[in-house]
């Protein structure tokens, strides 16, 4: 199913990639944003597709008309300077922004053919399908086992203790934590090191078997060795999950992602294959960012 085309019917504005002339114009004037996102924000086998997303905090607009697709089983990296709205955008994808009273989201956001902001949609169900890993490791003040078992328990995914044990074990194995913690499953999750805590949070997320995993700067609070482990893990997970990751580190984006989206002040400036973005950035802002002139 070609979701990109499907949305073309709904939105009057053309969603085709920016034409040559527009691109040139944007390059001449580096301070101006491109009318359209440069590159190829859309894919054929989209797992999630977002069109013209605006986000407001009260009167302040944080996201301006962002449109992009996240393809099935691909890793999409969202990069950009601080305050560019990449985290805000990510939090729209499983409606974590609902917890902020003054936050308002407009535009169309779909998970396959499910409208995320359909009033009839169940957020609980949505969040079971789209899991999230947060910036700071946030294990519950419970045992390692209970942390991982929390999701399956509330969703009723395991009928017997045996099933639950199995889910916990496989989740911890997938998160690469099993060997480190199998002897102390019932000691508190808060007693683990930072990197282990973050992998525990990832295990906790995948224990619910989500279709998409959102990661909001998952390594920003970790040391380089722990970061390397998480990055390995992301590569492994991408075989079975669709992943969107917000990151501050361009190297990380380059290492783990298939495609990269560059955000600037609430706008999606450029999105392309990761290699293209990092080797042949089209827009001045993107180039300035990846060459380290700001950010």
């Amino acid at each position: 199913m070609d979701t990109a085309e499907k949305f073309d019917d709904k939105t009057p504005r053309s969603d085709t990639p920016a034409s040559q002339s527009e691109g040139e114009q944007a390059m001449e004037n580096s301070t101006r944003y491109p009318e359209q996102t440069i590159g190829s924000p859309y894919v054929d086998n989209a797992k999630m597709s977002m069109r013209d997303v605006d986000v407001f905090y009260g009167d302040k607009q944080a996201i301006h008309g962002v449109s992009l697709d996240i393809g099935k089983n691909e890793v999409v990296a969202l990069i950009g300077p601080s305050g560019c709205g990449k985290s805000t955008f990510l939090r729209c994808l499983n409606r974590m922004n609902d917890t902020i009273d003054i936050c308002q989201v407009k535009g169309s956001l779909h998970l396959e053919d499910q409208d995320l902001y359909d009033p009839k949609l169940d957020v609980v169900e949505l969040r079971a399908r789209v899991g999230m890993v947060f910036q700071k490791p946030n294990p519950f003040p419970k045992s390692i086992y209970d942390n991982v078992a929390y999701g399956p328990r509330i969703h009723g995914l395991a009928n017997k203790k045996y099933d639950l044990d199995e889910i916990v074990e496989t989740s911890l194995q997938k998160a690469g934590l099993w060997n480190e913690v199998k002897d102390r499953l019932h000691s508190p999750g808060t007693g683990l090191s930072g990197g282990q805590q973050q992998r525990l949070c990832i295990a906790r997320t995948i224990a619910v078997s989500p279709e998409v995993v959102l990661m909001d700067e998952p390594c920003s609070a970790l040391d380089p060795i722990a970061t390397a482990k998480i990055e390995e893990l992301i590569a492994e997970l991408s075989e079975s999950y669709t992943i969107a990751i917000v990151t501050h580190s361009m190297q990380q984006a380059a290492r783990v992602s298939n495609r990269t989206a560059y955000f600037h002040l609430g706008r999606l400036v450029e999105m392309n294959d990761t290699e293209t973005v990092f080797t042949k950035p089209e827009h001045d802002l993107t180039e300035a960012y990846i060459t380290g002139r700001f950010g």
Partner: peptide, 27 residues
Amino acid sequence: VPQALRDASLGLGATRSETIKKVIFPA
């Protein structure tokens, strides 16, 4: 109780009352 714990639970698809009863209240 830190917001991060609420986010973690809600992000897993827990309802509000589940979050309160199983995460916030014990904490």
